[in-house]
């Protein structure tokens, strides 16, 4: 059947959009592009004859053209939805993606991610009076300036705003400024303890 491979791509993406990003399926995309090229070449040949008056060829040309458009739609949707997912990850993981996520991106997607990062950073810097505003902070309305946190993994040394260095060791507990540790909590390094 026509445009079957492109649909596979869409299915594959649809299955795994619950928070992860599947590897960029370069192989399949190439196959879809090849199918489109074949259909296009056939159409070009036939269009030549059709123009000379063999109108019975037109129906086949239309059918192939529909398949080309379908393939195009599937490919664009694949790329677009991946970008949306990468954008979401920028807000969840902060500006540095974990290596295994990065491994699943293609080169152009990495470029796009870096440019998005730059745009977002510039925008956040331009906000407010002095030094900008970090929009990725306070995803939930803050209730206290300081929060009690427990380390879930060995993270190493961490320098707070007032200059003291603390060691984030597994199972150690700290009383930190919320603004400083919110990112670490979102990334699963610290756990917020509510008393």
């Amino acid at each position: 059947m026509l445009a079957e491979k492109a649909l596979d791509l869409v299915r594959e993406l649809q299955r795994s959009l619950d928070g992860t990003l599947p590897p960029y399926n370069e192989d399949k995309i190439r196959q879809v592009l090849e199918e489109m090229q074949t259909l296009f070449d056939q159409n070009k040949d036939k269009a030549h004859f059709a123009a000379e008056g063999q109108t019975h060829l037109l129906s086949a040309i239309q059918l192939r053209h529909a398949a080309i458009r379908r393939n195009k739609r599937c490919l664009l949707a694949y790329l677009y939805n991946r970008l949306e997912q990468i954008k979401k990850m920028r807000w969840e993981f902060s500006s540095v993606l974990p290596s295994d996520v990065k491994y699943n991106l293609c080169e152009q997607e990495v470029q796009w991610f870096n440019q998005y990062n730059r745009l977002l950073a510039n925008y956040m810097r331009s906000l407010g009076e002095n030094g900008g505003l970090d929009l990725t902070q306070d995803m939930k309305p803050p209730k206290a300036l300081y929060v009690l946190v427990r380390c879930l993994v060995d993270h190493g040394e961490f320098e707070t705003q007032d200059g003291t260095t603390i060691l984030l060791k597994k199972n150690s507990q700290h009383y930190l400024m919320r603004a400083e540790c919110e990112h670490l909590i979102r990334q699963g390094i610290l756990e917020h303890i509510v008393q």
């Binding site: 619950d18 928070g19 992860t20 979401k88 990850m89 969840e92 993981f93 974990p98 295994d100 996520v101 939930k140 209730k143 929060v147 919320r178 919110e182 909590i185 979102r186 990334q187 699963g188 756990e191 917020h192 509510v194």
Partner: peptide
């Protein structure tokens, strides 16, 4: 149960970790 004011690991990160 006043859980919603607790800061939590984002679900994207959690899923990613499970897969890994």
């Amino acid at each position: 149960s006043r859980e919603s004011e607790k800061l939590s690991t984002s679900s994207v990160v959690l899923n990613q970790r499970k897969r890994k």
